[in-house]
Design a protein around this nucleic acid. Structure first.
Lengths: 246, 246
DNA sequence: CGCCGCTTTGATGGAGATCAACCTTCGTGG
DNA sequence: CCACGAAGGTTGATCTCCATCAAAGCGGCG
């Protein structure tokens, strides 16, 4: 159930089987199933629980008054929304499903129980939170400095690597269940230009994309095209000194 | 010493005088003075301490291999770098001073002591961390969706409001010790276009800017021009239920 | 079959980058 | 005290990347 999360956290630290059970139980506690494109939380809502995505894709986004929309992040299986949201009085952005999605709702109480009683998990979750912030910074760089090709290439690299850490790639391929309009909202481009950019990437044989399946024949080349450097994802078992010794 | 930080945190929760002393002492512990444009941390460094800016301006930024640079955030007096950085093996971005700066270096140990023993401070610091993430998201929106005028207007609003919460505005004015080139790196624009955009804002009487002093005659109008909505800064004493009762 | 959501294509326009000067201010040293 | 240089700000001319508009393909599904 919480397999993707566990697999992701183990890029930071090796968890004991007890740690894993604790996470599994938290993920069971209360689940919610959503269809594609349903609202999970709306800007202005009072946040009451922590969400963990178990299956499917979702996204955070903000609307401007005049209707423009920016997707500020994708939630993939294993992703948590901010650990401490319930400190805030109201959400400053919205969250929607992209595909159909199963989420776990973790209550404030049981979340705090985990943080209190399980220092190794706690550390791993903070690591994950720091990585989320690094991702958000990298998106800032992406939108501020990279041109269309680089921007799309960079986003695809990020998604592919993140899916990989959650165990959701198959060889050189992965699902990419987003429309070009959604890619546009995430990259700050128009749909038309996303379309042309994807074609260019296809012509250069940097990607193969059809029927919601993305294949990256040579990830290194795509990374170079997108000036992608994975260091911001901090994937090298940085907390090894905490490893469970079982 | 830690006045700006305390003042900022009190937008979330009222602190006891003991709380304030604890923060003051942490800010005394070990200080460092830097001239303008000095490196504080470099991408790749192992982070060892938490920095708190006491005086002056600094920024975080990332370089692309080909030299392009994106400023991903400004540090104003009272700002802390990520609470838990030392979990990470290496920095994924750099931090430099803009003006001359005084920072406090808070050791991992004494930082953890604060977090352990002072729940009200801890909550306030988490609130601050969540606000930092919201700011980063808002920058993503800024770069992705807003045009030049809106983008600069939005940034100026944000800086003015944040300075205000730290007690660093004088009426309608504040310091703005950044060059146009730095504004360009923060907004993803060219210096030339930042210059023209500032002129336009001046012509519209939305700002008055000279000699590093920014004056905003009518903040509401500038906010409208930048589609600025302050809710992402969460400034309405959200943690009032925790207020120290003294 | 026919519609709806998504992708693709072509034509046109504009916001902002780039290049290249020039100007102003201010700190430094002769 | 002035001369000079460096750093920052300002301007004009040109070009390009990407937005916008509009219409046409193309599956998939009721």
């Amino acid at each position: 159930m919480a397999k993707a999360l566990i697999r992701k956290l183990e890029h930071f630290v090796r968890l004991s089987s007890h740690d894993k059970e604790v996470l599994e139980r938290a993920a069971q506690e209360r689940q919610r199933n959503l269809g594609p494109h349903e609202r999970i939380m709306t800007e202005g809502d009072k946040p009451k629980v922590v969400y963990l995505v178990l299956e499917g894709w979702a996204c955070r986004y903000k609307h401007l008054e005049d209707g423009r929309r920016q997707i500020v992040g994708f939630f993939l299986p294993g992703d948590l929304c901010d650990l401490n949201v319930f400190i805030l009085r109201e959400m400053d952005h919205s969250i929607s499903s992209i595909t159909s999605v199963r989420v776990a709702e973790i209550s404030r109480l049981s979340f705090e129980t985990i943080l209190d009683g399980h220092p190794r998990i706690t550390q791993a979750l903070w690591w994950d939170a720091l990585v989320s912030m690094a991702i958000q910074r990298e998106w800032t760089v992406n939108l501020g400095q990279r041109d269309a090709m680089e921007r799309v290439a960079h986003l695809l690299c990020e998604l592919f690597v993140r899916l990989g850490t959650a165990g959701l790639t198959r060889g050189k391929s992965c699902d990419l269940p987003v429309t070009q309009a959604e890619l546009a909202d995430a990259t700050g481009m128009s749909t038309v230009h996303v379309n042309r950019t994807l074609q260019e990437l296809r012509n250069l044989k940097l990607i193969h994309l059809s029927g919601r399946i993305l294949t990256i024949p040579d990830l290194d080349r795509l990374m170079r095209a997108g000036l992608f450097n994975a260091n911001y994802l901090h994937l090298d078992r940085e907390g090894a000194h905490l490893d469970a010794n079982e």
